[in-house]
């Protein structure tokens, strides 16, 4: 059985992960959680309660914006979308994570480990 990804790494990747998912279109909490699971093949273990503070923090920082909508079942649901600022942040995050990923790949591929 595979070991789950370290908590610290999960936390560090939460922003680009949420921003990337929202780059694909508007979404809401539970749906985002499901997408994280699918995208990571179940390797990133996000607890249900972990996502909402992340969403609120991103909203406070202006990277995403939320709006309330009534679902077909008459439930209130908060949908989030990426803002222009969020798009710029995602581009920066992408560069940073690629740099980290590239460096690690190089070091492992070069027989340093």
């Amino acid at each position: 059985m595979k070991k789950p990804v370290y908590k610290e790494l999960v936390a560090a990747s939460s922003r680009p992960m949420v921003l990337s998912i929202l780059a694909g279109g508007e979404s809401y909490g539970y749906e985002i959680l499901k997408q994280v699971k699918v995208l990571s093949g179940g390797e990133l273990e996000w607890s249900d309660g972990m996502l909402y503070p992340v969403l609120h923090r991103l909203e406070r920082d202006g990277l995403i914006a939320g709006r309330w909508e009534l679902t077909d079942e008459g439930r209130r649901r908060k949908y989030y979308r990426l803002t222009a600022r969020g798009k710029r942040q995602l581009a920066r995050d992408r560069v940073s994570w690629r740099a980290v990923h590239g460096a690690l790949e190089m070091s492992w591929g070069g027989g340093h480990v």
């Binding site: 909402y52 503070p53 406070r60």
Partner: peptide, 12 residues
């Protein structure tokens, strides 16, 4: 715990 996190992360 969640409410503390919200208070830290939310609109303050």
């Amino acid at each position: 715990v969640l409410s503390r996190e919200f208070a830290r992360a939310g609109a303050v």
